[in-house]
Design a protein around this nucleic acid. Structure first.
Lengths: 231, 231
DNA sequence: GCGCCGATCTGAGCGGCGTTAAGATTGGGT
DNA sequence: ACCCAATCTTAACGCCGCTCAGATCGGCGC
């Protein structure tokens, strides 16, 4: 299998790069497949040997970009030293990274979320949802969250963080500087976490995340046995 | 000024109706201005006498649809009887209405939010943000929220509700039935409200909502004097 | 009753788009 | 050295958003 043919061997990646740049420059819809092709010096139809359609290109780009968000969010968690008295610190860092990321490149972030679910069961390396879930598990372990509030808590927190991110990216809310963004993200995360910690009613059926079907463990058995084969 | 000319006098409204139906049927981007025109029995160029561009049509549609969301959310608040012991009930109803609305017509809701900020300073009758703010004021008055947590609380709650709504509408979260949706919406609202109520740190600078610049009173002076003329 | 006039809509057309089919070009494996 | 599969190009189709010159309509003054 050749690694480089013609001018390009990594046309696929080059097209994704060009498309991402165009999204950044002109907005989510302000570009065409023809333009991306021209930018990498290739005819429009060449793209169709790597993507079934323009939409497929967008989905692939979305996946790549969502993967970067996952990495970044997970790194933010890892880089935050183990909490002392402040058990919420790691999740604050995660939420801040999520919101910051969406605001750095609003168009790219919008595209990523817009096409995030329409894909064919994409399995991302560290999906943001999973990072939240893992950190909430950690928070429960260290006593920052009562176990009875844990099931499905990821979806509550995800909603809050994602909502702030999209409201900011779409311009429905405006904040003057990065410091204000950080502050607001922290406020949202802390309010949600302490609200979850004070929950009294028992949570109902747990939602499913679109990208992973069995990551959400059942309420009754935190250390549940493996359900569907596999290691 | 004539009220009905040619076949149509209310072409504008008819085009908005057709566009909305098309969005409902085919998704946010699965339609064309030509198609909407044809559906109301008019040539494509006729639309340009009522909208400067396709984008202008989309913005107008977004405004109309967002207005309906505002009405609905505000009605949900009004129809909920004054809370007895449960001070959060009204806001739970508001959040539920918001999320339900987004899920009834995911494509239309997506379009509404997507184009919600790009308009020319549209002033909606009851903007969802304002309904939340008013209800939070009420909650503060009745003692359900400490006054020190009130400034900017609308944005925290809006983020949570809007996040759940968009995650559901975009398919990133799946819930099996309407009951589960109601339950999740209630959980999100209650968690956020009790989290806000237990806030300890002082809130920083208040964000601005895109549609209204001076609705958010400054932290220091709840009964602040009028700032910019007007009644 | 009639002709004018502004408001409203039509028809033809431009450049660009996504997409497809058929053919030219390339480089590695034998 | 040649072949073959992978890769890219050229040409074209139909639809799109948008523009502009002109046809058509309804009310109003005469």
């Amino acid at each position: 299998m050749p690694k480089a043919c013609y001018h390009h061997g990594q046309l696929r990646g080059a097209l994704l790069d060009a498309a991402e740049t165009l999204v950044r420059e002109r907005g989510v819809d302000g570009w065409s497949l023809r333009e991306a092709s021209a930018r990498v010096g290739v005819s429009p139809s060449a793209a169709y040997h790597h993507f079934a359609s323009r939409d497929a290109l967008v989905r692939a780009l979305s996946e790549r970009v969502l993967g970067r968000l996952g990495e970044r969010v997970s790194r933010a968690a890892a880089e935050t030293p183990d909490p002392g008295t402040d058990h919420q610190r790691r999740l604050v860092a995660v939420g801040r990274a999520y919101v910051r990321w969406a605001l750095e490149d609003p168009s790219v972030a919008t595209l990523a979320f817009r096409a995030g679910a329409t894909g064919p069961e994409t399995s991302l390396d560290p999906h943001p949802h999973d990072v939240l879930a893992a950190e909430l598990d950690h928070l429960t372990t260290t006593g920052g969250l009562p176990p009875r509030a844990r099931p499905g808590a990821e979806f509550v927190l995800w909603s809050a963080v994602h909502g702030l991110a999209t409201l900011l990216a779409d311009g429905l809310i405006h904040l003057d500087d990065d410091q204000a963004v950080d502050h607001e993200a922290e406020r949202v995360v802390r309010a949600t976490l302490t609200g979850l910690a004070h929950e009294t009613t028992t949570p109902g059926p747990t939602p499913h995340s679109a990208h992973t079907k069995r990551l959400c463990q059942r309420p009754g058995s935190p250390g549940a046995p493996a359900l569907h084969g596999g290691a």
